[in-house]
Design a protein around this nucleic acid. Structure first.
Lengths: 278, 278
DNA sequence: ATTGGGTGTGAACCAGCTGTTAACGGGGGC
DNA sequence: GCCCCCGTTAACAGCTGGTTCACACCCAAT
């Protein structure tokens, strides 16, 4: 289902001063000119998009926010809003239009818009509202990309987009690394397939897409090749995957299990990770 | 009967959407009256707060959003905004004021407001904007954020789609887990078969479908296998099921009073509590 | 007591999920 | 331009578990 051809660069690393990638769908040249002037040199990466652009084409752009005037859309604005919202749940949507009614604004906000600005408007306010939406969306995102992370035998280094075992690189590709990172950040929690796809690929998973499975397999292969004796990724049938390092040594987990209640110690869920078993 | 077997797609299963908890700081009685009328019966829990309320006191209220007019604040509005924003990063902040300038709005949005509405405004638009802000805030946090839940001897962990007794997994399948979760969330209340089906399966139950019964049976088996001596799921003939942990020990229930129930209170043999049908 | 419908129970079926492998094709580096 | 890398997609096999069926049992009403 690869709509995304290339454009794999713009990555989210430091949430802080990451430039905002803004898509603009508007035809008012005066408005565009003034806005462009304001955006220049403010750390924005913006791109003016044609009015007839299908939502699917937005996928590859890795936008943070979309500013658009519904009157320049060729397709039904409400339908467009809904489709963009469901396809790209991580995208902030700001509508900017002249002569809107309360009912229109309410409807727009209900079907997925994050804000609705009335024209004419000051470019400074547009920028402030775009940033508020993006900030709101980024808030609560991944904590600390900065620090390396050690789980089990492996070390994950965001500064190099790579993982290591005893200093030896796993030689992960970009997708493999991102998948590993998303999984590892949620250590111990089950992540649904769709959520995983959403986090790594950036847009909604198409029905029947097997990419996640294939990459989990690749990841497992590289993890096992470099760190045998450990199991990291556990399958939860019908749900998704869970990352949790487990030593395969017959030596029990590093918990003092001499206790009279052996199971009381959280044996990490003997959940059938259909890999092991007999 | 049911539609195709798998069908795990969409279906967010957030059937029980939490009400929005909204704090309001305003003194315009007319505005408050109209807004209150709109909020009533829409699943809102709102609370009008005094203008001089210190941000620290908001912490305990577990609000989702705060709607306020800066002109009624005794303290410096900008300072208030910043402190609330840093103190409660998960709170949506909507400013609603009359006679604001572009500069004020920009400043407000910069220091932490998520939206800024100009008075006079339609209550419907206020609600729509509040919901947009809350929606944006909630998105991304899956159901896993809900903390674990302990009922009787069992612990339900949404982060693992699994239930445990003393650390031992019940090894529930996805459907079984979801059924348990829906039942447990309505602890003590009877849920009709159709409502149960609707919640878990996501669509209407076909006439004659026995899926609910079968899954209740599977659930009971696993509950009883792992937590014998307790009864969790009670049948209400002709209606549905009720989840309520009951110890089968002759030792009195942990309830203080001796329950002067006229009808056979928990007869230890009868598997079903036809109970207080009245 | 009889009866009709609702519910418990066990088992079988098979749609769909996952693991696995390999071919395809675009992009970037050389 | 050529080659290699890597993400995508398809195909196949094994297995899980959701659905369905059949029958026994229980409840409530006549």
């Amino acid at each position: 289902m690869g709509i995304a051809g290339g454009l794999y660069h713009g990555h989210r690393m430091s949430v802080r001063r990451d430039p905002i990638r803004l898509g603009i769908v508007d035809s008012d040249s005066g408005f565009l000119k003034v806005l462009a002037k304001r955006l220049e040199g403010s750390g924005y990466e913006y791109r003016v998009l044609p009015g007839g652009i299908p939502p699917e084409e937005l996928v590859a752009s890795k936008l943070n926010a979309l500013l658009f005037d519904p009157t320049v859309l060729r397709s039904d604005p409400w339908d467009f809003l809904e489709r963009v919202g469901s396809l790209l749940p991580g995208l902030g949507i700001i509508v900017c239009s002249a002569n809107s009614t309360v009912a229109q604004r309410v409807r727009g906000l209900r079907v997925g818009a994050d804000d609705w600005i009335a024209k004419p408007c000051h470019p400074e306010e547009v920028v402030a509202r775009v940033e508020a939406v993006v900030r709101r969306h980024r808030r609560g995102r991944s904590t600390a990309d900065a620090g390396p992370m050690v789980v089990g035998e492996i070390e994950i280094r965001p500064d190099r987009f790579q993982a290591y075992v005893a200093g030896r690189s796993l030689e992960l590709t970009r997708r493999e690394y991102e998948l590993l990172q998303v999984l590892a950040e949620a250590e111990g929690r089950v992540i649904e397939r769709e959520a995983l796809y959403q986090s790594v690929w950036g847009y909604a998973m198409a029905h029947g897409d097997r990419s996640v499975d294939v990459f989990v397999r690749k990841l497992r292969a590289k993890l096992n090749r470099t760190s045998p004796g450990w199991e990291y990724i556990h399958t939860h049938f019908g749900i998704g995957y869970r990352f949790e390092p487990e030593s395969l040594d017959k030596a029990a987990v590093p918990v003092a299990d001499a206790e009279p209640e052996p199971d009381a110690a959280r044996s990490p869920d003997s959940n059938r990770s259909l890999s092991s078993h007999a």
